[in-house]
Design a protein around this nucleic acid. Structure first.
Lengths: 191, 191
DNA sequence: GCGGCATGCAAGCAGGTACTTGCAATTGTG
DNA sequence: CACAATTGCAAGTACCTGCTTGCATGCCGC
């Protein structure tokens, strides 16, 4: 089974870097140290191999959870955001490629977007629980706050290496984003 | 000069949809209603044509300005954000492709990122002026607020068609994002 | 030892890729 | 009218693309 796994792993890596068209069967075989025919004997076609490789990559990536009961909003959200940000950062190449490839290969969108949707729902749940406990103000859309925070983290993780002129440093960004969200939601704490 | 312009326009469109590798000289020529050799006679190579096409596209896209003197934060920011969002939405295909292509063709990054950086500086300037006039609170990072708002708008414009499960509707997103930023910055107004 | 099974190797197929060459037709300009 | 620039057309180059075929080699369980 090692050959198959090696092919899947190498294919995911090449796809992230070169996209669908740029990931040729010759390149895959060479990078995996395997003859090209072996690839076709295992998967039948390039399309099947690529789909399977992307699927595996996304599956191995379950989103980090937030506590069931909120206690310290700032530290819990910051910890979650740091974790989430790091994971997206690690996969930024794959994510960018999937975003661009969506137009020609829409079938890869749901599998790539799944984890993000789960995380989104988890954050909304967490903030709702916090509001029920009076830890944040009564007004302000929790859904919008969640989307805004996740969008900001997502963008930062994915484009920081492309747009080097960002006026917020890599190191501070997450803390500042969480701080702004807590301010926006009127979190009852001192800073 | 019409042939040259037609080629540039068609090339930008095809690049946004199919990426660098997918934009073949045959396809460009066919879509422009021009013989393939004409393309090479004008630009010499595919690389030159693509670079020029992307450059033109980005150049024609100057960012919308904010007022020099802030008067109504909410309406001015909402107007600006709506405009900015619409423009990014129109170019989402091109932006996604450029993001993915950055790895193989880093030379297209600065030209594509330029307008966004200008907008970013403009918003920071606007918010700084507002703070000087006492329209928002003294604390909270204006740079972080700007990055967060722009990241949120950017992501929404670029991925809404890819991630259909967003819990915030298309129509409300901009108002809600601006509302959260104003809350975070302690804007002195009633809502 | 022997029959499957995975793999390698060499070659090839039909089509696509960027790009070139040579020549004819058109068009606008002096 | 004559000349030059622009374009089209047909063909061709060398290479890459996904994919197939035929045959040889090693390995592992019976």
């Amino acid at each position: 089974m090692s050959t198959k796994n090696a092919l899947l792993e190498v294919t995911a890596r090449l796809f992230a870097e070169y996209g669908w068209r740029g990931t040729t069967t010759r390149r895959i075989a060479e990078a995996a140290g395997v003859n090209e025919v072996t690839l076709f004997r295992h998967f039948g076609s390039k399309a099947v191999l690529l789909a399977e490789a992307i699927h595996c990559q996304a599956e191995a990536d379950s989103p980090p959870p937030l506590p069931a009961v909120p206690t310290d909003l700032r530290s819990e959200l910051t910890g979650w955001a740091t974790n989430h940000h790091r994971r997206m950062r690690e996969h930024r190449s794959m994510i960018r490629t999937c975003l661009a490839e969506f137009e020609e290969h829409p079938e890869i969108a749901p599998v790539a977007a799944g984890p993000a949707m789960e995380s989104m729902a988890d954050v909304v749940r967490y903030l709702t629980a916090a509001r029920e406990r009076g830890m944040i103000a009564e007004t302000g859309s929790l859904e919008a706050a969640t989307v805004m925070l996740m969008n900001a983290l997502f963008m930062d993780a994915i484009t920081r290496d492309v747009l080097p002129g960002c006026p917020v440093s890599d190191h501070d960004a997450i803390d500042l984003f969480v701080d702004l969200i807590l301010r926006a939601l009127g979190a009852a704490e001192a800073t």
